[in-house]
Design a protein around this nucleic acid. Structure first.
Lengths: 133, 133
DNA sequence: CAGGATCCGTTCAGATACTG
DNA sequence: CAGTATCTGAACGGATCCTG
């Protein structure tokens, strides 16, 4: 049986889709921004270098697991740097890179759209909810 | 006991954070764009009005559940319109709105950043992976 | 101080079956 | 054709305990 079922066809389509997505730069960026804490951390570091505990305090509600995870992925992407100073106890400072700062611009543009249009979106939502209530 | 434990303090912080987030327009926009299929659907409809099955075919790998869910939320936000024509069987056409089209611009800017910088990100990632391997 | 490792509940997305 | 309803496995995020 050479994948002729509906599920089979969908599976095929999914493979194609995944391959497409893996190549799609926009999508990969989106997956990054998608991350709940990425933008927050980026914005926080945009205002100045900070230590782990300082970031933790600056961003309310983040668990240390998620913060560490986020910082690691940002470092991996070259959007921030992590500098360890071997004092006792150890000191770790995070800073945004040039690349990270350029992304901050994009985030800013999104912010601008949001501030200009989200009220309209809200109106539409309320309207929709009222109609479907 | 007036929430004095570590967990209690985090819970408090989380409530503050959630309240902040609910008010944060940028974040709400991000949550929207975050959605796996939103940008795809938006881009697809940006090229012309389409029917449900046409969108389904155009976007590989999307399940009908996710597609319906995505279309509903976009309609709720006023980013697309849904027009039902009572033929037999019924015909449903989706179209992007002005609001949706303005968001498309933002998506385009993100796409531009991605195309300009994602190669660099890739280099950083490979570098990072090589160092930590 | 700055995490690593682990457990666990919730949430999400896909598969399947059914409807007007 | 264009969905709705339901079930389930996988992924995600949080809590907790432990280390250099």
């Amino acid at each position: 049986m050479a994948t002729r079922t509906a599920a089979g066809r969908r599976a095929e389509a999914k493979v194609e889709y995944d391959a497409f997505m893996a190549q799609c730069k926009s999508r990969r960026l989106l997956d990054r921004l998608t991350d709940k804490w990425v933008t927050l951390v980026l914005c926080t570091l945009g205002e100045g270098d900070l230590r782990y505990s300082e970031i933790s305090r600056h961003i309310a509600g983040v668990s240390q697991k998620m913060l560490t995870q986020t910082l690691r992925s940002l470092e991996r992407d070259g959007l921030i740097t992590r500098t360890v100073t071997p004092t006792v106890p150890v000191t770790v400072e995070y800073a945004i890179t040039e690349l990270g700062r350029s992304l901050l611009v994009v985030v800013g543009q999104m912010k601008a759209w949001a501030e200009t249009h989200m009220d309209q979106v809200q109106v539409h939502q309320d309207d929709y909810d009222r109609r479907t209530a």
